[in-house]
Structure formats: C-alpha cells, structure tokens
Design a binder for these strands. Sequence first.
DNA 1: GCCGTTTTCGGCCCGACTGTTTTCAGTCG
Length: 571
Amino acid sequence: MTNSQIAAALSEIGTLLELQGETGFRANAYHSAARSVDNLGDEVEARVRAGQLGSIPGIGSTLREKIETLVLTGSIPQLEELRASTPVGLLQMLRVPGLGPKKVRALADSGIDDLAKLKQACDEGRVAKIKGFGAKTQENITNGLAFLDKAGGRIRIDTADQLAGPIVALLRKVPGVTRAEACGSLRRRKETVGDLDFLVAAAEPGPAMDAFAALPGVADVIARGDTLTSVLLPVGHGPRATTIRADLRVVSAEQFPYALHHLTGSKEHNKAMRGRAQDRGMKMNEYGLTGTTCASEAEIFAALDLEFIPPELREDAGEIAAAESKSLPKLIELSDLRGAFHNHTTASDGAATLLQMAEAAQELGFQYLGIADHSQSLQVARGLSPERVRAQREEIDALNAEFEDFRLFHGIECDILPDGSLDYDDDILASFDYVVASVHTHFNQSREEVTARVIRAIRHPSVTMLGHATGRLILQREGYPVDLDAVLKAAAEAGTMIEINAQPKRLELDWVHARRAKELGIPIVINPDAHATDEIALVSYGIDVARRAWLTKDDVFNTKTRRQVEAVLRV
DNA sequence: GCCGTTTTCGGCCCGACTGTTTTCAGTCG
C-alpha cells in the first residue's frame, strides 16, 4: 500500500467526519496526518511491517494504530462505517465550488445527495427554497456545476508560466502600480497549480482590478471586493480546453512584503508562521506583523528569528525548524549547471543534429552535453543498432576534435527490457561514456515485477544513471507501479545516479523522492530529455524540483566541471 | 485527534467575500 493510498484513506475519514457535522479540529487532524504521510519520502508500509512506524508529525497514538490496521488488514473499520452511513454522492458534491460540508449536509437533508439530483433541483428552483439558501446561491451552484464539467482542476507549471507571465507584465504597466508578482503555488514552483494568485502594490486598487477583470478571455468575474478580484480564465484550446481561477489582491507598498509572504503560502507554512508569531506575543497576517515595518520577506523572517526561507521550501516540511537553527541548505541555482546527460538527436527521435545540439548547449554556457539517443529495441524511436552506435561514436569524436572548451559525451538511453536486462551486449554497453537506463515499455507489469526489473538494471555495472524513474505523465498518466523506496535503496547501494527528468510534463523523480534520494546519498542528475535545441533550457524546471527537494549544488552531478565529469566517467 | 518548560487539559491561524441574514455563517485560500 503506497503512502498516497494511506493518505487518501485518512483524508477521506476527515472529509466524511466533516460531512457528519464534525467540522472542528478532529476532522482537521485527519487531513493534517494525511498531508504528513504524503510528504514522507520513505514508505509507511515498510515501516509498519518492520514494526517501527517512528514518529510522524501530526500522528499520535490513535492514528498510529489506525494506520497500522490499514496497512496490515487493508481497511479501517471506522472508514468503512463512515462510508456505509454517507451517500457516496456527497463527496462529489463537495467538489462544487461554493459548496462546503455545511451546505452539502443541508442539501442531503432535503434529499439531494448526488450531482445529478443537485443539477435537477437547481433547474427546478428547489434549492433556492431550502433554509439558508437563496436564488443567488442556487445560481452559483449552477455555475459551479458547469465549472466542474469543463475544468480539469489543475494545470501544469509550464502552462501556468505561459498564462501568468503576460498578466504580470500587464499589471506592471497599470498606472499607480509599483509592484506586481505572481504568488501561490506557481511561485513555490509546484509541478501543477490549481489557481493563479497575483499581488499588486498600489495606492488605489481600482485601476489594477479593472485591468484584471478586463483580461482577454475572462469568462466570469466570480468576486469583486475592495481589494480582491477573482476571475475565471480559459486555458488551452479545443477538446483539452479548461478553465482556471485567478485572484488579484491589491495592497499598499508598505503591506506588500507581508502580503507577498501570505499569498505565496503554502497554507500550512503560513499557519506555522502565524503560530510562531503568536508564541512570541505577536500577530501576523497579510498586512503586517505586530511591531515591525519590514521592507522585504527576508526582514519578516528575521523579525521571527529565522533565516530567509526560499518560496520553494515553504511547505511546512521542516523548513521553519531548519531556518531557526540556521541550517537551511544553500539551494542549487540554474547557473550552477554546467551540462546535462539525457538528450536526443536526429539519430533517434530528436529534431536536431549533434552539432546543432552542441551549439545550443554552448549558448546556454554549458561546458559539455551528453547525447543519449534511444537503444535498438525501441524501433518507434529509431533506436540505434550496434553499427549506428559505432558510427555515432566516430561522429562525436570528430566533433570533439574541433571544439574548444566544450565536449560531447557519448551515452545511450538504454531500454530496460521486461526482465530487467539491458538492450545491448555488455561489451557495447561498456563502450559508452555513460548509460542512462530507462523503462519505456510493458507498463502493465505488477509492482513486484517492475520493481525487480528496475533494480536489476540499476545494479548493472555499466549503468550510470536511472532515467524516467516512474514513467508518469503529469495530469495524464500514472506511470508504472514501481516501489520507489526500494529503487532508491538499491541505487544508494549500487552507487547509481538518478535523474530528475526536467520535461515539465514528467518531472520524475518528484520533489518528495528527490529529497529522500539526497538523504540516501544518491547523486542526482538534472536532465532535460531534450528532443530539440530549445528543449535543453527545460533544465530550469528540473532546478525547480531540485530546490523543492532541498538539493544543493553538491547534490547534483551535472554541476561538476567538464574535467570533474571526465574523471568520474573515466572517459 | 494532536500537542506540550506557563502542559496531561485546553488550546488549536487569519481575513476577504458572499449571501442570507437582521448580526453572521459558510466557503475559500
């Protein structure tokens, strides 16, 4: 049973308790415990089976027992009872924007207990007659149902970047606006975002809010108050089109640093920060911190005796304790990268030649670039036969003879075959400067099979690094059911590196497991998996993941100089 | 349900906005 399955069960108990009227702190404890489990790098199941669950924040003796029961028996009696006594449609109804546990309960008491009945009741005007509801609420629910229908919920970070960039630029041009930033999960660089948050400093909120409400394509203005405007923005075109919520908050220049911190979140980080302020007899909100006039976020942290905490770390995942003891890592930066190792050319399924890729890498300031085209069995991607491997080697040697202060490394993205063996004979594998081993096929293997398969590859002496650790496509495909905890342990033992695949649709390892990999001492490689010259720059998304995983320059192999890399690869 | 040198009970973050209310509850972030 995976951590996310355990977290989902705990979270469901919390939600069902809310629906039963238990809105207070007890329900919240389940949600908080679920989040703790989700953010855990190693597997709860393994801990339970080893008889040492250990201490997890937010999990006391009661929840400890329930987790053990869940792992060992597959279910929690309390959850089964809650499910049995709660109509299944109520959980769906909670997803409608504007409907919380209280309103859903009220609807259920009137016999409306699934989305279809809710739609029908709205159409017939029955919802407006329920006590506590009205015509406006009924209209909002109708709109909410339509939103649920067409909105996929979250969008990828690169999509969010493309949306938010022009909006920030536009806000900065509004007369009277002195500062404008995108905040929220986008600023924390999460792999997906559920909404966009913008913050503006201006003496008068009106002009910025007007400009925001008039953004091209705004489908609806959900809310408009004195300092906050919320709109629905269309995303994408055609059948994949969706809608996302965007908020603009306007504050004074003096309030800006406090509001920037507040709106950047996360919610949990903010809670912990406000609690810390409270412990010191101070009150913290988006407008200020008692007794301070801070000109920057750094000064706010300093006022609470903390080091500056970069936005990427603000998840209430230990960052405040580390900032208190001045032991936050110096996070890796994009400028630390000196090369990358997983890149394709026209030899397999890339769009650029060796020379074009080499030139693009040099323009980014790289000292080296590793070429890892596909291996022979992956025929859809024109995988390289042994003969073509030798030809590419000669081509690379010839180019390297021409370069000054730059080098192409000759690698391969070698398929891990279904049984865990590799796609070339050992002597060919040994001829490469390095080997990236990846799973591309047979995703339907069992967890045990695919885990054993990946671990066998990791242990092969010629394998330098593991690519595509999970095979997932963000918001599209789950990936293969690998036991990542076991894979990481095997990599640590074998001394095999693991890549953070920087394609924004992949981003595997994710930040939770990349952080775990660091704890285990596994070298990380940030790879763009570039299939064209302009994709090499995607390494910036890998940097985002690495920073969220607390990685420093020293944790990442491709921050090393060309000479250092040559020494490690023994080329 | 969790948590802890003002602790084993009584706290548990804070505010904007909306809609249905005659002063506030619910939802959201």
